[in-house]
Design a protein around this nucleic acid. Structure first.
Ligand code: MN
Ligand code: MN
Ligand code: MN
Ligand code: MN
Lengths: 235, 235
DNA sequence: TAATAAAGTTAGGTAGACCTAACAAAAAAT
DNA sequence: ATTTTTTGTTAGGTCTACCTAACTTTATTA
């Protein structure tokens, strides 16, 4: 199997390369910064992981994970997020206390343990921070996103991404408090032209339909939308 | 805190020095053998632990734990046994599958985690192998032992130790299948002279009262005897 | 385009936890 | 009381995962 250090690098690479919407090019320095080590150390490890066919990169080039490397990294993410869920659901930890401990627990080596834990927790799809938990094959559930313009009146959504990246759009969004990770409630919508009243950070703003068509949101609690059986599902 | 290796040595020392009825003198070779390392390695570590005031020993002398070292070792034992209990009680592991995983889990560093786990499991007093779980102060519950001669007819006990160590006694005990860790049921007892019928490994043997007065047994399920509230308690 | 800055690499070094081989002390057997 | 065996110690070496300092390549800016 892999050492604790190797696992941390593989997980970091999955996170930097695959779990970010933009700028998924990753270099030695960025990886080192992310893991709180020096670039020289990260460089050593990259060479080692290349030997083991877990990453693929050439000197001075950008880093990518092989299929095998990605699978291994996903597995660490899976374990991390399952343990976080365990700590919150079963041991009454709060969401901000779990990370440090999960950072250790994610390295326990036992297939049976992980899968039993998964079942014990009733195969959760998202961890306490709302991040998707990869299944045993490393597959991840993409949260059910919808455009803010399609959210019904009275419902709320959590912003996950924006389509428009122009300065005017971003500055406007920022001005009314709309940011990635933030909550928006659709307080009202005019049927005549789609003028929409959004409640953001306890303040109401009337915006155009065009604006709403550029914002992706998910259900803040389950992230699953349509197929979700939870009774507090927003979608 | 302590490194994983240090913790393994401390736990081993607690086990060799304090959790054995006889022969609690421990040397470098025995420690090394127990931990599957070479004597030279154990010697290195002992010097390191002495520096840290966790063990106390002189060159060529026997090893003992300081108060601090014993506390630290007990804590590892506590974690090991709590995790074993978790695996069996909550994740449906069998008693023979838990050791290897607990060997890893015992090194997770988080006071809150251990204590929450303890509560989640409802503060168990014994692990799946029947070994006592130290409490947060490192105190251990001594199982409630009684002499086989005091066990009521129909009840069963698990052998934990013998008083007589003569060859004739041990050979006799061996012949009828009585060994440490084994089960004995008191099938009958003659009120005239205490002649007792024992059921061992599905065979009946009639033995003297004198024989029964040399065998210590505990309740095989709870080990607590009198004060135990479990309805399958044998005592 | 040349100068400067940023990013990435290499060489050489440390600490922890292990090893082998040679040696010394203590215990057991003759 | 020697010899032999067992037990314990030391010296010196490996491997992993870090580090610093010097250097090279690539990217940015003047
Ligand atoms: Mn980690
Ligand atoms: Mn998380
Ligand atoms: Mn261990
Ligand atoms: Mn046990």
């Amino acid at each position: 199997m892999f050492s604790q250090a190797e696992e941390n690098y593989l997980k970091a690479l999955v996170q930097l390369i695959h779990f970010r919407d933009q700028g998924n090019e990753v270099g030695t320095n960025e990886l080192a910064l992310y893991l709180n080590v020096k670039p020289a150390t990260a460089n050593d490890m990259l060479k080692k992981l290349r030997e083991k066919s877990l990453v693929s990169y050439v000197k001075y080039g950008k880093i990518s994970l092989t299929t095998e490397g990605q699978k291994a990294g996903m597995d660490v993410v899976r374990k991390h997020r399952l343990w976080e869920t365990f700590l919150v659901e079963k041991l009454d930890f709060t969401w901000d206390e779990v990370h440090e401990v999960a950072e250790q627990l994610e390295h326990i080596k036992s297939k049976k343990l992980v899968n039993s834990l998964d079942d014990f927790l009733q195969n959760p799809k998202f961890d306490p921070h709302g991040d998707a938990i990869p299944d045993r094959e490393g597959r991840i559930l993409i949260p059910y996103q919808r455009l803010l313009s399609e959210v019904s009146i009275g419902k709320s959504g959590k912003v996950v991404s924006v389509k428009d990246n122009s300065n005017s759009f971003l500055q406007y969004a920022d001005k009314i408090g709309v940011r990635i990770g933030g909550m928006i409630e659709v307080a009202g919508r005019e049927s005549y032209d789609g003028q929409t009243t959004l409640r953001v950070e306890n303040k109401d703003h009337t915006v155009s339909d065009k604006f709403c068509m550029n914002i992706h949101v998910v259900c803040p609690t389950c992230k699953l939308g349509k197929d979700c059986s939870k009774n507090d599902c927003s979608f």
